[in-house]
Design a protein around this nucleic acid. Structure first.
Lengths: 231, 231
DNA sequence: ATTTTGTCTATAACGGTGTTATAAACTAGA
DNA sequence: TCTAGTTTATAACACCGTTATAGACAAAAT
């Protein structure tokens, strides 16, 4: 009855995986160009050189394909976040994570839009399997990207830069919302220019950090930046 | 030659406007239920009791219909913002604007998603006519909702609560990005519960405000909330 | 009052979409 | 080699947005 847990990859499985990858590649290209709506199963199959049925056997339909792209997007974001050097100074690490997040959003606008889209039924699917995951399922910790943010904030707390009587996830979510809001508005074109967007990103992130910092953290930030943190 | 600037509304114009409104109403209902993709011109025309051609004569097609809904969304947001009482204390006014923004987003998720959607070609259209608007076109000031935010921030600057050597729009955009990021993540379902979302909204907005406040503003906030603003 | 004119509407058609039924091709195992 | 099970290609179905076309209708002119 086709148990999927067979460890040895047979010939058909090999070709199937290769075709699966080819489908994902072609779909991501379409996604890059014209957004999620531009993904046509017919054109997709034609690009790969097969029929639309391949999408149904491999992913179960268009929704399954989008779900696979969804996970691909989170993997890319996680890779971008992991590539940030873990500076011994937690505040700098946190700042690097924010910059990397923005760079990922600007470089992969379609993937980013897919990740945070509300209308996509994919979101609910992901969240469903999130709730029913294994015991260590505390919120969205599954995403490596969030884990990086969480660790950086925790390091800032241990460092004394952030208050210790506030939940780590509360602070992490604050930074996530701030950085995401900036990227979202920038991608939506609400800022006049890339320079204006850069200025707003820096100012807003800096203000957010200043709002969370303890007195000790303020002093440390001042010594790092060489400016007066009062303003 | 059908000059549209005739001031007297004839019989056909009346009925045409009525149908226009009926189409917008039905489309907004579809938008509420299943997002922009759920708007089918055929079902829409059937609901109103006409044919699909009515959409083309009234709006020029589906894109024009969405554009009209887009403006409707901004009008609703502006109304929600205008309904916020202008407290003599600017900081409280600003906080009220943020709360009203979130309430609008939660009550009109489809409209909100439409407003900040990246893929929608509508955004570019709006921004196009924005750039080519009349002389007083400074950025996105056309939106009454943003004007409220701008005025509240300016009041905080005049009040001495916010620094005066930072551009007003820079601070306003910081709050906008923060509040939008929170609403976007909440609507996308990234928070565990409504209570968790509420907590994050309060904490993040408060932190953002604390990060922008001057010393004088910190003292004033402390006297307003009756808590120690140090944390 | 009647004719004319111009716009709007209803119908049908075109090319496109996702999905599904069906039969042929193909692989893996007996 | 034969058989069982799966994947594929083709065609069809129902739906979509859009458009061409002919008929309906209100406004204006005679």
């Amino acid at each position: 009855m086709s148990l999927d847990e067979s460890p040895d990859t047979s010939t058909v499985d090999k070709r199937r995986n290769a075709q699966r990858a080819a489908l994902l590649d072609a779909a991501s290209e379409m996604l890059m160009r014209g957004g999620p709506d531009a993904i046509s199963l017919r054109k997709l199959a034609a690009n790969v050189g097969t029929s639309t049925m391949a999408v149904y056997t491999a992913f179960g339909g268009k929704e399954g394909l989008i779900t696979a792209l969804f996970e691909e997007a989170f993997d890319r974001l996680a890779a971008a976040q992991n590539a940030v050097p873990k500076s011994p100074e937690p505040l700098l690490w946190l700042e690097g994570l924010g910059r990397a997040y923005r760079r990922f959003a600007l470089d992969n606008p379609s993937y980013y839009a897919l990740m945070i889209s509300v209308t996509m039924p994919v979101s609910e699917t992901i969240r469903h399997e999130e709730r029913s995951s294994n015991p260590p399922a505390r919120g969205i910790s599954r995403y490596a990207s969030y884990q990086n943010l969480h660790d950086a904030v925790q390091a800032c707390i241990d460092d004394g830069s952030f208050p210790s009587d506030v939940d780590t996830m509360m602070i992490a979510d604050a930074f996530w919302a701030t950085v995401h809001g900036l990227c979202s508005l920038e991608l939506a074109g609400f800022y006049a220019s890339a320079e204006a967007a850069q200025e707003r990103f820096s100012f807003t992130c800096f203000s957010m950090m200043r709002g969370v910092l303890t007195e000790k953290g303020l002093a440390k930030l001042a010594s790092l930046a060489g400016v007066d943190p009062k303003h």
